[in-house]
Design a protein around this nucleic acid. Structure first.
Length: 478
RNA sequence: GGCGGCUUGGCCAAGUGGUAAGGCGACGGCCUGCAAAGCCGUUAUUCUCCGGUUCAAAUCCGGAAGCCGCCUCCA
């Protein structure tokens, strides 16, 4: 079974064949760092994180590039609003972004280039386009890319330039030769950050940075380029135009685009005031709950963020850790074995099918069920044979978790964390709970079940659930 | 106006030609003093609707309805 990827360029799934055997070049559009990141950013980042992990696990040497757009109108505006420098703004939000993504257990890409650190590359790129007659400088205005110089313009988004010109909703800049031409370099207004260039002091347009930086780190052609669906047009369309016009060869082999996150069935928008920030979500939910949620639907479909779905995911994650806890207590060594069992094969098939994490999750639950069944059947004394089978199951499970970026804790640490989180907000402390549990244990010994149930009911009101196991009574938050 | 997508059980959600994964919930059972957890069983003869192609369709084609996204900054 080999990897298949849905390619936006072709509109269908294709077998993944890298340009160079064993190696993958992947570029993903990162954030424009002018504001706090929201759950939609998290989805994109987590999805490509999983893709990165899967490609790596599949044996590829992955060169994963994710940029920061750190020069842009929005950053300048924000800087002016706050009386800060654009650099202060971009640095502040890059730091936030890193903190939050680390919090979400996202691996750092191989390299994270910034637009402002590649101005020379950008200027060189533009100069070459002008030399080839594919871009033009309008005295006193911008440098524009000429759409007419690139016959395949529109191939990614399936639009043709004539239709777009006809339906254009924006006022046409009279400096442009064609209404669809776009800016490569714009002159700086007084007080704006700027760099010297053959066209006077100015700064790059949005699209050119990705062409210049991907060329710098991945070459003229590379394997995978990703980002949110909204970037298909115009951003990625324009990147293709710039890069293919200049190099005369295919820019990217596979285009991968993720769907959006809705909030309670509504689009996230400023007007609705429902922007859901990652840092807020991280305060409410365990990072692995957030990841599991983001991966519970296929990456191309829209996903709806709501309390009910999150609650379901919490239950699911508990189920996985509960099993591992059971297994560990039964004597299973929870370390990962290099050997892959049959459960892993099923998971791999799902991931090879266009990174179908939702299907992969079904395998995880099937695996948990299989393990629980074995434990139920084994009873008090677990045979060596069962133990070995359970080790394989747990190892597979943890390997699956490594791909999705979950199950990174020991069951003990996970449940301890949950207890701490549960205790943090309320006015109960664990000593008090332990005291009640002990009292109840004594009551049960004395066959005073009325008193035992009374204590349990009282704890239940505090969202504490008791479990009477062979090794004594344990408790957890519901 | 142009382009694209979606519609699967109470809810979430896989499934692109071979006879409906998985999760949550609900109900019954095992276990338990009773619970919880776990396990077993039940919960869609059917995939928005109407036609068509096919031995065979949730899956392909045509049409209808509803919902959504992009075309302007946007993950």
């Amino acid at each position: 079974m080999s990897l298949r990827i849905y390619n936006t360029l072709k509109g269908k799934k294709e077998e993944f064949v890298p340009l160079e055997p064993g190696k993958v070049g992947m570029y993903v559009c990162g954030p424009t760092v002018y504001d706090t990141s929201h759950i939609g950013h998290a989805r994109s980042v987590v999805i490509f994180d999983v893709i990165f992990r899967w490609l790596t696990a599949s044996g590829y040497d992955v060169n994963y590039v994710r940029n920061f757009t750190d020069v842009d109108d929005k950053i300048i505006n924000r800087a002016n609003e706050r009386g800060m420098s654009p650099t202060d703004i971009s640095e502040k939000y890059i730091k936030e972004f890193h903190n939050e993504m680390d919090g979400l257990n996202v691996l750092r890409p191989t390299i994270e280039p910034k637009a402002t650190e590649h101005i020379d590359d950008i200027i060189k790129f533009i100069e070459q386009l002008i030399e080839q007659g594919k871009a033009y400088y309008v005295e006193g205005s911008d440098v524009f890319f000429s759409i007419e110089s690139f016959g395949e313009y529109g191939k990614l988004s399936g639009r043709n330039p004539d239709d777009m010109i006809a339906g254009a909703r924006i006022a046409v800049d009279s400096n442009k030769r064609s209404p669809m031409d776009f800016t490569l370099w714009k002159p700086a207004k007084p007080g704006e950050p700027s760099w010297d260039s053959p066209w006077g002091p100015g700064r790059p347009g949005w699209h050119i940075e990705c062409s210049a930086m991907s060329n710098r780190y991945l070459g003229q052609s590379f394997d995978i380029h990703g980002g949110g669906k909204d970037l298909i047009f115009p951003h990625h369309e324009n990147e293709i135009a710039q890069s293919e016009a200049l190099f005369g060869k295919q820019f990217v082999k596979y285009w991968v685009h993720n769907g959006f996150v809705d909030i309670n069935n509504e689009k996230m928008s400023k007007s609705l005031g429902n922007f859901t920030m990652i840092k807020d979500v991280l305060e409410t939910y365990h990072p692995e709950v957030i990841r599991l949620f983001l991966l519970s639907k296929h990456y191309r479909s829209p996903i709806d963020f709501n309390e009910n779905s999150m609650d379901e995911v919490i239950t699911s994650l508990d189920k996985i850790y509960t099993f591992l806890d059971r297994a560990e207590k039964a004597g299973v060594d929870l370390s990962i074995s290099p050997d892959a069992g049959e459960e892993w094969q099923l998971f791999a098939q799902a991931m090879d099918d266009d990174f179908n994490s939702a299907r992969g999750m079904a395998t995880i639950f099937d695996t948990v069920k299989k393990g629980n069944r074995l434990l139920d059947k084994a009873g008090e004394t677990v045979s060596a044979e069962t133990l070995s089978k359970l080790s394989e199951i747990c190892s597979d499970l943890k390997k699956m978790g490594e791909i999705l970026g979950i199950i990174s804790q020991t069951p003990t640490a996970y449940f301890k964390g949950k207890k701490e989180a549960g205790l943090a907000g309320g006015d109960i402390d664990s000593a008090m709970i332990d005291q009640l549990v002990m009292e109840r244990t004594q009551a049960r010994k004395d066959k005073n079940f009325a008193r035992a149930d009374e204590i349990r009911a009282r704890l239940d009101e505090l969202n504490i659930i008791l479990e009477d196991g062979a090794g004594g009574t344990t408790w957890k938050f519901s």
